[in-house]
Design a protein around this nucleic acid. Structure first.
Length: 284
DNA sequence: GCCCAGGTATAAA
DNA sequence: TTTATACATGGG
């Protein structure tokens, strides 16, 4: 697979990249700091940088950034060098429903988010809905992030570890506040090392993360998939459990292999848009 | 008002 | 070991 990009007057133009749909990627519940713009593009903050992306036919304009920022920040973030076509081919062999899902959601990419941000935002995600998660994350950054270059960075574990539950009241994060603090404290004091976790086998990494108060298996798997780019992680929420049962005949997610996480994202997105697939229909 | 949300900790069976 | 319930808040 190859892709090309060039510096142009208004930024960097990414030409007709295969397997990259902005809306599918940024609106499939893996990240919470991106918003659609009135021009039909997307705007967001990640890795300490803000970015506007405009859609121009089959190309994407990364507005007002240098070539080096594009290469150093955004190619890794969107994992643009990864060949999703090849992965999809192998996934399609596994199960006909997965083939359906993969072809429907083929523009989704698994973003390489900051590990701490992914962990923290998925702690916030529990028993919560996506619009409200976005609001809480936004308030978290405004209250406790540092203001740099016109944006609020995601607050560090060190910053949050010095706070108490009452301090987090402005977030209106409910019972999750104590979970956020426990995670921040364990990381800030070194009891949990995110860089060490990134070297561990999947099972051990998950077990480490679930020692954090308020982090269960689902949140740990989300953090591993979206924050550590562990593509074999497989977040199993109630929706996905149902999908595995009804659409895949009770199949074990491990059968999806080393790219199970990508399969999960395809299935999650596809089945949410097609509630009629399930015996009892539910609202999207 | 009502239902419920990309769950988890805790108690009870 | 499995199943039920509280949890804070607010989007739709």
């Amino acid at each position: 697979m190859q892709f090309s990009y060039t510096a142009v007057l208004g930024g960097v133009l990414l030409k007709n990249h295969p397997d990259f749909d902005l809306s599918q990627t940024l609106d499939c519940g893996q990240c919470f700091r991106w918003f659609p713009t009135e021009q039909g593009g997307w705007s967001g903050v990640a890795m300490g940088h803000s970015l506007n992306i405009q859609i121009q036919h089959s190309d994407l304009l990364f507005q007002d950034i240098s070539l080096s920022e594009f290469e150093q920040i955004w190619i890794p973030y969107f994992d643009l060098a990864m060949d999703y076509s090849k992965i999809r081919e192998s996934l399609c062999e596994i199960h006909p429903v997965l083939k359906q899902a993969a072809s429907y959601a083929q523009g989704i990419r698994i973003i390489r988010q900051d590990p701490w941000e992914a962990l923290c935002t998925f702690i916030i995600s529990q028993n919560n809905n996506i619009p409200r998660i976005r609001g809480i994350v936004d308030r978290l950054c405004r209250e406790f992030g540092s203001y740099e270059n016109g944006i609020y960075t995601f607050p560090t574990p060190e910053r949050l570890s010095s706070l108490c539950v009452e301090d987090l009241a402005p977030l209106r994060s409910g019972f999750r506040a104590k979970y956020i603090l426990s995670a921040a404290q364990k990381i800030a004091c070194g009891e949990i090392s995110l860089s060490e976790i990134s070297t561990l086998p999947l099972n051990e990494a998950r077990d480490r993360l679930t020692t954090i108060y308020g982090v269960g298996v689902k949140v740990a798997e989300c953090a591993l998939l979206y924050g550590f780019h562990r593509l074999d992680a497989f977040p199993l929420d109630v929706w996905m459990k149902r999908a595995m049962q009804e659409l895949f005949g009770g199949m074990n997610p491990q059968n999806f292999g080393p790219y199970a996480g990508i399969a999960q994202q395809y299935i999650f997105h596809y089945s949410r848009q097609h509630p009629e697939l399930f015996s009892e229909k539910r609202a999207v």
